[in-house]
């Protein structure tokens, strides 16, 4: 089937099998920042934006994005780099496999919440798992980023 959509601001037609999830389709089309880690919608690695809001592309049927706007970190490189500097200053990216999905959630939160409390941040980010960092370094990076850019 063919799905007309917009990815990172450009109109695109995705050709896909019925039942294919968006994460797989995006990777096929070269958006390789999109990682998959769990098959159960549990880990947040595949986080992209659907019409500006974070969404798990591994549980989103490609057919469902007809006419919708998709954003991946490939379309957010400047802002992602800004945030990345805070991550690497803490070493919090470690293996990096969860980082693009994590960053997409952070950048969405920055738009959605004004002066969030620690708990609000934790809640917003709860769906992004990381096995390397133990989270506290990520949180340090994130709070410092919000201080400067929030």
């Amino acid at each position: 089937m063919k799905v007309d959509t917009s990815i990172n601001g450009r109109a695109m037609t995705l050709e896909c099998e019925n039942g294919e999830f968006l994460a797989g389709a995006l990777r096929r089309y070269g958006f390789l920042s999109v990682k998959e880690g769990c098959d159960t919608g549990s880990c947040g690695l595949c986080t992209i934006w659907l019409n500006g809001k974070p969404a798990l592309s591994c549980c989103l049927l490609t057919a469902r994005v007809e006419g919708q706007e998709i954003t991946t970190i490939e379309g957010m490189q400047e802002e992602a780099e800004e945030f990345a500097h805070f991550m690497v200053a803490e070493g919090a990216e470690q293996c990096g496999f969860c980082s693009p999905g994590f960053a997409m959630t952070v950048l969405a939160m920055k738009r959605e919440l004004t002066n969030p409390t620690d708990d609000e941040v934790k809640n917003y980010m709860a769906g992004n798992l990381c096995r390397c960092s133990g989270y506290v370094g990520q949180t340090r990076a994130l709070m410092k980023y919000l201080e400067v850019h929030g």
């Binding site: 991946t72 990345a84 991550m87 990216e93 980082s99």
Partner: peptide
């Protein structure tokens, strides 16, 4: 990390 920035950027 030498590759940290690019890893975060995907």
């Amino acid at each position: 990390k030498v590759d940290g920035i690019e890893l975060v950027k995907g």
